[in-house]
């Protein structure tokens, strides 16, 4: 048991180590899913905004957050879902974007090849392996890649 309230900045840094279940290279904080952390009495409330309605990872993300905080001794954690304003791909941090690129996923306003950096790409499918991604192919190196859609 943690007898004293932990500083919320500390909680944020713990959450920055919680990976997204489908894109483990990026944390749930850097994807912009965690919106708020605050103490309400003795209870820590973590507010999350789901990415897509159909995202099957939403439940897992909540479970992972609670488990991570419990491992740091925080047992009284409540998850709150906030739908408004809806999640936007603009909430992905600069660090998150760079991690996506290194993971082989393009993001941002236009799909640039994450491997060779070419801007000449073609869309293969508007929906990729998950709702948040589209499938593209680089016209320079010919490799297919996922594009984190502007949303």
């Amino acid at each position: 048991m943690v007898s004293q309230m932990v500083d919320v900045q500390q909680v944020w840094s713990w959450l920055e180590a919680v990976p997204d279940p489908e894109i483990p290279a990026v944390s749930v904080v850097d994807l912009g899913i965690v919106r708020d952390v605050n103490w309400q009495g003795k209870e820590l409330v973590v507010t999350v905004t789901p990415t897509y309605s159909g995202c099957p990872a939403t439940t897992v993300i909540g479970r992972d957050i609670v488990a991570a905080l419990r491992s740091h001794g925080l047992n009284d954690v409540r998850l709150e879902t906030r739908l408004s304003p809806p999640w936007s791909s603009e909430w992905v941090s600069a660090k998150g974007r760079e991690q996506l690129r290194q993971f082989g996923i393009a993001s941002g306003p236009a799909p640039v090849c994450p491997r060779c950096g070419a801007a000449q790409t073609e869309r293969l499918s508007q929906f990729g392996s998950t709702p948040c991604k589209a499938l593209y192919r680089c016209q320079s190196c010919r490799e297919p890649f996922d594009y984190f859609k502007p949303f």
Binding site: S53, G54, C55, F127, P131, L135
Partner: peptide
């Protein structure tokens, strides 16, 4: 394959909604 993925994704969105 792309259509299979797309239809499943639309179905998932609608299920979430």
């Amino acid at each position: 394959l792309e259509e299979d993925l797309a239809l499943a994704n639309v179905a998932l969105d609608l299920l979430g909604q």
